[in-house]
């Protein structure tokens, strides 16, 4: 009876419950980071990894597609972690950004968006060909999915791909996004990701806004605005290039 009442309070005030829960999760993550890894692995990296594990468990438990947010008492996490709040916070991070840094890397940042879309598209397309796909529509849709999980379905719909191919393209994009979140702090040093300049190139090449947002947060939060800035152009450019120019190239080659 008391438990039921408590659960009802938690799910009725879902967003507030999410604030409480995320606070506990952050505290736990920073505790782990300090005690178990002696600060070697950043607290936010630990938190993001725990978040992804919880998303897996939530998905397994409910069979839904929104991770932990599909459980009623955690539904506020869906609001808090949704695109609206995420983008609001991303814009806010720009407040401390230095204009000179942006100007310095502006052209390279723009170039890296186009290079990033083309590179991911063709890497994805080559993998599709390697797995025996011959239809240029399917190859292009999977290639577009390797760009981001939004470019994939947009391209697939525009080209008239079947729904199972579109689902594959979404899975490829989701894999990319999750891997960027988890992998970035581990490779940051090796790829020189320690200044606004390379952060803008990184955002442009990776393109997945959620991946870049979390990857930089776990590496160095000061770099977030620079990477996020270029990443937000990636999906638009991808939706522009993949179903048109890049598809025509694939069709000519296939």
């Amino acid at each position: 009876m008391l438990t039921e009442m408590l659960l009802a309070v938690l799910s009725k005030n879902a967003l507030i419950s999410a604030f409480l829960f995320m606070g506990l999760l952050m505290w736990l993550s920073y505790f782990f980071s300090e005690k178990l890894t002696r600060g070697q692995i950043h607290g936010s990296a630990v938190a993001i990894t725990i978040g992804l594990v919880l998303a897996y468990l939530g998905g397994k438990y409910t069979g839904g597609s929104r991770g932990l947010a599909d459980i009623a008492i955690f539904s506020g996490i869906g609001i808090m972690g949704g695109a609206m709040f995420r983008d609001f916070a991303i814009v806010a991070t720009a407040f401390g950004a230095k204009t000179d840094e942006l100007k310095k890397a502006g052209r390279v940042g723009a170039a890296s968006v186009i290079i990033g879309v083309v590179l991911s598209f063709f890497v994805g397309a080559i993998v599709a060909v390697g797995f025996g796909y011959k239809d240029p529509v399917a190859i292009s849709t999977i290639g577009a999915g390797a760009a981001t999980y939004i470019v994939g379905p947009v391209t697939g719909t525009a080209l008239g791909a079947s729904s199972d191919i579109i689902a594959l393209s979404v899975a490829a994009g989701l894999t990319k996004s999750v891997l960027v979140m988890v992998g970035t702090p581990f490779v940051a040093k090796k790829i020189g990701l320690n200044n606004p300049y390379s952060a803008m190139i990184y955002g442009g090449l990776m393109g997945t806004t959620s991946g870049v947002a979390a990857g930089l947060a776990a590496t160095d939060p000061k770099l977030v605005p620079y990477g996020a800035m270029t990443a937000t152009f990636y999906t638009g450019v991808g939706c522009l290039l993949a179903p048109s120019l890049l598809f025509l190239i694939v069709r000519a080659l296939a």
Binding site: A18, M26, I48, G51, A55, G58, I77, G82, F85
Partner: peptide, 8 residues
């Protein structure tokens, strides 16, 4: 962003 990770 952590909440975003938890709803992926």
């Amino acid at each position: 962003v952590v909440a975003m990770a938890a709803k992926q």
